[in-house]
Design a protein around this nucleic acid. Structure first.
Lengths: 158, 158
DNA sequence: TCTAATCCGACCTCAGTGGTAGGCTTTACG
DNA sequence: CGTAAAGCCTACCACTGAGGTCGGATTAGA
């Protein structure tokens, strides 16, 4: 499996906030019930999204979470990055702050043939990130609202 | 991390067979030395590639492995699939034999909103597989032979 | 002040990754 | 024919991270 439940649950949380989200906050408890997820675990996941600035919280009774950014402006690469940490196809991919990945593999003998797998993993990484960037939360929210019968597998590949 | 060392080591093995590979077989021992990999582990990885029919072995003294398919005809999706098993972005993605992924998540209540995350993970999966399909072993072998100085990060994104 | 909610840190269990160990079988070469 | 070099095969094992639980502290509405 490529992504963990953090991404799955976190994205579902975002979708729920988009679906239910009027002006008043949505409690994690209600999301946990609707989505059938463990509440305590969901709390920690929500913290990740909050730190990234995607959602905002109000504490106390009748508190909860709301989207801090319009659903149209949330691309899923930002969400998944916040939830999963750096998206690296291989362990030796350590991304620095500047954004482009560097490879620190067992192949730093310099003189010899250099790491050809880097070429492959870089392409894969790019493929993933582009797929995530092309999808907005608004799309997912709209998709969640459709009739299940209407959403054949054909429509997924757009 | 998305892929394990099985994919990393397995692809390196393929590259070595492509680079060193004349007509006579290459022993895993020599590959393990060049690539600095554990031999016993590499043996098990080679078995995966053999089962897939990508490499062929000859036993006994001076035995070893050769590519069973021309490097130009080996696309990396086939290699990675053999090494890692099914490429699914999320646990609930169970791919059946027919090739298209079905989702078996906690959302089979039918009536309710259906699984919108499916849309996202399907796109990601497609992004990964396309990236792998677009890369052949021959490309990686050629890349491994280049001068390290000539291979800037720019050239990776082709 | 009771209760509903977010926050926070410690803890726990289990499966998979990344190996190792040891032996068996096959084959070239002297 | 014997030995060494290679592929093959199965069992085992340590460690890490995933996926959660628990208990409490804090905040705020009724």
């Amino acid at each position: 499996m490529i992504f963990t439940t953090k991404a799955e649950y976190g994205v579902r949380l975002l979708i729920q906030l988009g679906v239910q989200g009027g002006s008043r906050p949505v409690s994690l408890k209600s999301v946990a019930e609707v989505e059938n997820l463990p509440l305590a675990y969901l709390e920690r996941i929500a913290a990740l999204l909050k730190k990234e600035g995607l959602i905002a919280s109000t504490r106390g009774a009748h508190g909860g979470y709301v989207l801090a950014v319009a659903a149209e402006d949330i691309t899923m690469d930002r969400a998944v990055l916040a939830l999963e940490g750096a998206i690296a196809p291989m362990e030796c991919f350590i991304d620095d702050v500047s954004g482009d990945a560097r490879v620190a593999c067992s192949h730093h003998d310099a003189d010899r043939q250099h790491c050809a797998t880097k070429l492959l993993w870089t392409r894969v990484q790019l493929g993933i990130i582009k797929s995530l960037q092309r999808t907005t939360l608004a799309e997912l929210v709209a998709f969640a609202g459709l009739e299940p019968a209407l959403t054949s597998d054909r429509s997924l590949t757009a």
